Amino acid sequence: MTDRMTDTSTDPVREILERWKAAFDGHQVETMAGLFTDDALFQGFGPEVTSGRDAVRAYYDAVADDRSADVTVLSTYTIGDQVAGGFADVTFKDPHGWEASVHMSLVLQRENDAWRIRQYHVSRVITDH
């Protein structure tokens, strides 16, 4: 994972994205699902917004297990000690040459002293218009 910002203190978005990347790269579906709140809003590559940890689990379970993600954190913020969010650029890859670049936005919520993803959205980067 790379940063375009200097990390001068603990940043919940960077922490979650490091854990998310490790779980994604290792195809650890249960670990990925555990990073989300029970009622998380989730917008992946599909056209529909889904809700809940079970939907997140099903989404990641359907992802090929040879895919990995390169993550560049662009910006993060916190609101008090209960809410955080940020933006990242992510490139998904597989060993056969497939790539998909997305912009990712996250909203995190602190639950029982742990940060979890409350809202996740990716938007595919299309360079030809």
Rank of each mutant, 00 (worst) to 15 (best):
V13W: 00
R14G: 10
E15L: 07
E15C: 03
E15I: 10
E15M: 06
E18M: 09
W20R: 11
K21M: 06
A23G: 13
A23E: 03
D25E: 04
D25I: 05
G26Y: 00
H27Y: 00
H27G: 06
H27I: 03
Q28M: 03
V29H: 02
V29R: 02
V29C: 05
E30R: 06
T31A: 08
G34P: 07
G34T: 04
L35Q: 01
F36G: 08
D39Y: 10
D39G: 14
A40Q: 09
L41P: 12
L41H: 13
F42C: 05
Q43G: 12
G44V: 08
P47N: 02
P47C: 00
E48W: 02
V49I: 15
S51C: 09
D54M: 08
V56T: 07
A58D: 14
Y59V: 12
Y60K: 04
D65G: 06
D65N: 13
D65M: 02
D65L: 02
R67Y: 06
R67K: 15
S68A: 13
A69Q: 10
D70C: 09
V71P: 11
V71I: 15
T72M: 14
L74V: 09
L74N: 07
T76E: 01
Y77W: 13
T78E: 00
I79V: 14
V83S: 01
A84M: 04
A84D: 03
G86K: 04
F87L: 10
A88H: 03
A88I: 06
T91K: 08
T91Y: 05
F92E: 03
F92H: 09
F92W: 05
P95C: 06
P95A: 08
H96Q: 13
H96K: 14
A100M: 12
V102G: 06
V102H: 04
H103Y: 05
M104Q: 10
M104F: 01
L106G: 05
L106S: 02
Q109V: 10
R110L: 10
E111S: 10
E111V: 15
E111L: 14
N112G: 14
N112W: 01
A114H: 13
R116C: 08
R118V: 09
H121Q: 11
